[in-house]
């Protein structure tokens, strides 16, 4: 239990909250890396996913690519890019973008692609253009699944941004690597607790957002929909 006391002492020590490499600074870096990576990955993945979902072809390629991406070890990608690009934020950011694309792409593709064809035909019949169908029919209906993909991507990026500290002086992972090197168990465990807390809080936010989205998109015909799903 003394290890946990050390961690608690580290977490409560005012010194760790001020100056260079303080908890607030590392925290801000971690969040900034996560948001930046997600923004870049979303700009790349979402339009492609929506296009594939809307055209209803090429989905097989997405599934295969997403499956293959899962087999690639993050640390290997990170160290390889680190050797190629050099020490700094470049390598982890590129590695994280590559990691975040598959879940975003899969979410957008499967969300848009799962729209009921009858609904799309109806929209087409009343004169909506293809773009209008995407924007005001498919995207709203697919929102929960797309946000689900964003949730997986976010959790993966937040967790893996910890590894960014292996090749760059940034993020909450710094505490873990510094603690490992100096055998400072307070910093090591305290830093780990911070990363886990951040991930769980983000996950809870997404769970809440999804609940709201689901309620909204299912409100008009919730009974019919839930019956459909149980088959």
């Amino acid at each position: 239990m003394s290890l946990w006391n050390e961690a608690l002492a580290w977490l409560l020590d005012p010194v760790t909250y001020t100056g260079e490499g303080s908890i607030p600074q590392r925290f801000a870096q971690h969040i900034a890396i996560t948001l930046g990576v997600l923004a870049v990955a979303a700009v790349i993945a979402l339009p492609i996913g929506v296009l594939i979902g809307h055209r209803r072809s090429g989905g097989g390629v997405v599934v295969v690519l997403a499956g293959a991406a899962r087999a690639i070890p993050t640390l290997g990608l990170l160290t390889l890019l680190g050797l190629g690009i050099g020490i700094g934020l470049g390598a982890p950011v590129v590695a994280l973008v590559i990691l975040a694309i598959p879940p975003l792409l899969t979410g957008a593709y499967s969300g848009i692609g799962s729209t009921d064809p009858a609904t799309i035909d109806a929209a087409r019949a009343i004169g909506l253009s293809e773009w209008q169908i995407v924007r005001s029919v498919e995207l709203p209906l697919a929102a929960p699944i797309i946000v689900g993909g964003l949730r997986s991507a976010t959790l993966q990026v937040v967790a893996t941004a910890t590894l960014a500290a292996y090749t760059a002086d940034a993020g909450l992972g710094r505490f873990i690597f510094a603690g490992l090197k100096t055998r400072d168990y307070g910093e090591l465990i305290g830093g780990s607790v911070l990363v886990i807390a951040l991930a769980l809080v983000l996950d809870a936010c997404f769970a809440l957002a999804l609940r709201v989205l689901n309620r909204r998109s299912h409100a008009p015909s919730s009974t019919a929909r839930s019956e459909e799903r149980s088959i």
Binding site: T162, S192, I196, L200, D203
Partner: peptide, 18 residues
């Protein structure tokens, strides 16, 4: 179990021993 899955791996490698 969904919560378990949300825990980042490197911190877990450090917490499990303790």
């Amino acid at each position: 179990v969904g919560v378990l899955y949300a825990i980042p791996s490197l911190p877990l490698f450090i917490l499990v021993p303790s």
